[in-house]
Amino acid sequence: TGEGSIDFQSKFGRTPAGVAETAKRHGKPVIAVAGHIGTGIDELHEVGIDAVFGIAPGAASLSELLADAAANVTRTTEQIVRTLQL
């Protein structure tokens, strides 16, 4: 699942919480990918989100992040898949 920004509030009826609820009913893991990671993401584990990854490679302007979004998502996804293959 994905969000532009994810934090503890994402467990209150937002899409990632709904995805996690459905996935857990089917015994599937849930990985969240977000442009920005805020505070309290450990609370998301309580609603079934197993891991959270940020896609921003570092400090950058919004226009830079948007321009590089596809590459950032691709890089992050590749790293997640590599981790799952360990």
Rank of each mutant, 00 (worst) to 15 (best):
T1N: 13
T1R: 05
T1I: 14
T1V: 15
G2P: 04
G2F: 10
E3A: 14
E3H: 09
G4D: 15
G4Q: 06
S5A: 15
S5F: 11
I6F: 12
F8A: 11
Q9R: 15
S10R: 02
S10H: 06
K11W: 00
K11P: 01
K11Y: 01
F12H: 02
F12I: 01
G13C: 08
R14S: 02
T15C: 14
A17P: 00
A17M: 12
G18C: 09
G18K: 06
G18Y: 11
V19P: 08
A20W: 07
A20F: 10
T22R: 11
T22E: 12
A23R: 07
K24F: 08
G27S: 10
K28Q: 10
K28T: 05
K28H: 06
K28R: 15
K28N: 06
P29S: 07
V30A: 08
I31W: 07
A32L: 08
V33Y: 02
V33F: 11
V33I: 15
A34R: 05
A34M: 02
G35K: 15
G35W: 13
H36K: 09
I37V: 15
G38R: 08
G38V: 05
T39C: 00
T39G: 01
G40T: 09
D42G: 10
D42M: 09
E43Y: 04
E43S: 07
E43I: 00
E43W: 01
L44C: 06
H45M: 08
H45T: 14
E46N: 09
G48E: 03
I49R: 07
D50F: 08
D50A: 01
A51S: 12
A51W: 11
V52Q: 11
F53P: 04
G54R: 13
I55S: 15
I55G: 06
A56T: 10
P57M: 03
G58T: 13
G58E: 02
G58F: 07
A59L: 15
A59R: 11
A59I: 14
A60V: 05
S63P: 00
L65C: 03
L66H: 03
A69K: 08
A70H: 13
A70C: 04
A71V: 12
N72D: 14
N72F: 00
N72K: 05
T74R: 14
T74G: 00
T77H: 03
T77M: 13
E78L: 13
E78T: 12
Q79R: 14
Q79N: 14
V81E: 10
V81H: 00
R82T: 11
T83G: 09
Q85P: 00
Q85V: 05
L86W: 05
